[in-house]
Amino acid sequence: MFEARLAQSAILKKVLEAVKDLLTEATFECSDSGIQVQAMDNAHVSLVSLNLRSDGFDKYRCDRNLSMGMNIGTMTKILRCASSEDTVTLRAVDSPDNIIFIFESQNKEKLAEYEMKLINMDLEHLGIPETMYSCVVKMPSQEFARICRDLSQFGEAITIACSKEGIKFSAAGDYGNANVKLAQTADSDKEEEAVLIDMQEPVKLTFACRYLNSFVKATPLCAQVKLSMSSDVPLVCEYQIGEIGHIRYYLAPKIDD
């Protein structure tokens, strides 16, 4: 028996919105410690790694490990049927063909159940090597989303250059070029508005806008985003999900031909 309950479906709704652009199908691996998803997009350029810890749920029970293949499009449609304040419960038997989503309104007067067929998927798990990153930048997630959106108008790629002074995003295309520099905040009263740079060595890397603009769909999950970069390795773009877990996106850089 697997059962996981969240007091408010808003978190799960946001998680689905944050992955649906990149993934069509994904395996949800459920164990005593929580729910994990690790899946690449079809082009094998980016990877989504989602971790929801069991202690972050209001109720969590997982008698035996389960790997449930889910269609992300269908799951997104089902989550859109829930109000943000509804309680959501995921339920499955031990060798499931289906998963049930149960939405209960706050006043308990409305109870909705949606059953979704599971799909068989080949499990291809990637081992992500431990990496010491040359630059780790924490910045407001809305600012990052804004910069990705704005610079996407100029080119199909954004170059991120990080040094002790700050972080610079730039894009160039047929119509011109653009760059946005953010300095490290000296002393921000509000943690959420801070730009913090932890730099060992300066880095300069180029990434496709299309993927960055998919990652920033996670913006509603967290006020801050963490970007970890080293030369010639994938970018890690991380959003904390409240007290329950995190979503990490990995993106292969664009390299010189």
Partner: peptide, 14 residues
């Protein structure tokens, strides 16, 4: 000219 690199080059399939 830049080309898009692939993730599987960096990560090991386990």
């Amino acid at each position: 000219l830049t080309i898009q690199d692939n993730l599987t080059k960096y990560f090991i399939v386990v």
